[in-house]
Amino acid sequence: MSTPTTGRLRVDGATLHYEVRGEGPPLLLIPGGTGGAASFDGVADMLAAEYTVASYDPRGLSRSPLDDPQAQQRVARHADDAFRLLDLLSPDAPARVVGCSSGAIVALHMLTERPERLERVVAHEPPVVEVLPDAAEHRAMLARVQETFHRDGLLPAAAEFAAALRRPGDPAPAPVELPPQARARAERTMADMPYFLGSIVPSFMAYAPDLDRLEALKHRLVLAAGADSHGELPYRPAACLAERFGTGLVHFPGGHTGLTTHPAEFGDMLRKVLAA
């Protein structure tokens, strides 16, 4: 694995840690969950053979501290951070953007806000539950998770949230043997879970994308989901939007976390989708 060039970017209310690899057209990778830039370590080198690959720790996570740790988080502010990074690294050329999970929500907002800056967007399982016909049920679930978080703490709330993401009736998954790098990363990012569950999840999963705007830009949008996550909650919005827009849903190896569990196959699929 190559060593990326790293930098710090001052934005409104935070300082972002970012990493850059390779040469070629600009490609911005937006992580989901608490993974940060390191979540793309398994695919970044492969993509850097063809692109200038940039990723970063979103504000409040890992190496991107907030000025005010209690500040409310909004999708639009996170999208502005991503644009500021693009403007720094690629002020002229339109970029390709890949977002996973909560990062995919940011990518969708970017496309609706400044489409002239984006050549193509790959959104892998954005949990925009407001597009679903049963959105009210998921709003109630998110409220229950927050109640549990504030009453009982992180672990009970995280367990309740994870159960809500699974297919109805599915048991909790057995532990998965992760690659060594992924295991070390999982241990490091547990420290960010209170911030993610308490600040990112309720705000991001309440986000309602501009569907008319997205449909008008669907030729630049690739909606993607895990081959193994059919029927799980994060899968459903991508499938719903693909059906609404008539674009088809691109299946990637693995499930919602296929980037971590199947990095080589996930990266190969990304190369194909980005080049199409």
Rank of each mutant, 00 (worst) to 15 (best):
V273N: 02
G254N: 11
G42Y: 09
R183W: 07
G7V: 11
R21T: 10
A174Q: 08
G24M: 13
L132Y: 02
A208Q: 08
A174F: 13
I105Q: 03
L197Q: 10
R139S: 15
P65R: 14
A107K: 01
G169P: 00
R114C: 00
L214S: 00
R188I: 08
A143W: 05
G198D: 11
Q146I: 05
I30D: 03
H78W: 06
P26M: 06
S199R: 13
A93L: 06
R188M: 01
P26I: 07
H109N: 00
Y235S: 06
F204S: 01
E147G: 12
G22T: 08
H138S: 05
T3M: 12
P26Q: 03
A123K: 00
E23I: 09
P168M: 10
L85A: 10
A157E: 06
A172N: 12
A276F: 10
V145H: 09
A238H: 08
L28P: 03
A44E: 03
D68W: 12
I200L: 11
A143F: 01
R220H: 01
E116K: 01
R59L: 00
H256Y: 10
L165A: 14
L249H: 10
A135C: 07
T260I: 14
Q72R: 12
A162K: 11
L223D: 04
D81F: 07
G226L: 02
V222M: 00
V11L: 07
A206G: 05
L214D: 00
P180Y: 15
G267R: 09
P26D: 03
L214C: 03
D80L: 03
A79E: 01
V131E: 02
L16I: 11
L111D: 07
M193S: 13
L233E: 07
D81N: 12
L221Y: 14
T112M: 01
A164I: 06
V98Y: 05
D81M: 08
A275P: 01
I30N: 07
P58R: 04
E125K: 02
Q72W: 07
G13W: 13
L270H: 14
F40Q: 03
Y51K: 02
E19C: 04
D57E: 14
Q70E: 11
R120G: 05
P156E: 14
H138W: 06
E113H: 09
